[in-house]
Amino acid sequence: MFKVGKKERTIKLLDTNEDIGHEKSTMCYLNKKLWVRVKLDTPLCIFDPETLVFDKKATEEIKIGDSEKEVTMAWMDAVDPKTGRFLNRSPIMTDGYNFYLISLKKHIKSEGTEEDEEGLPTALVVECYSAADFKHVKSTTLFKNESLDIFIPSAMRSKEKVEDYLNDFVMGGT
């Protein structure tokens, strides 16, 4: 279970008693359900917003990405070596039409360097999936200027600081 909001309303995960703190989850409201990305074996959980009961069936039916290439929403301890993608406390959000996830990804053009330090993902990427079928629509890397310098400040480019940065990022609301 974990707590929601200032009033500590509780969401119960039926298949676990693990206590998941607010700092280990992100959430959004989409298709009349409460979507929670959480640090568990099932990283994307769906809840009934009226009862706050875990909707196991809806959760199991959700597949993000294309049918032949499902995209993981799992929390990672290290960068995926195949994709260069890194998810930690990555926020999820919606515009009501699409589902968005903000990931970190290795990016070759960084301010003051020819290439990012090995193993450190340093670009924020907005991944967009259709809320109708959850197929990938587009991914957009965030830049701080038209010279295409990536958004994350160089001072944040260490694993610990990136995670800290993401924590602050999420607290800004989604």
Binding site: V126, C128, L142, F143, K144, N145, E146, L148, F151
Partner: peptide
Amino acid sequence: FDLATGIR
């Protein structure tokens, strides 16, 4: 950020 270009 402009989501079409990613530029702030």
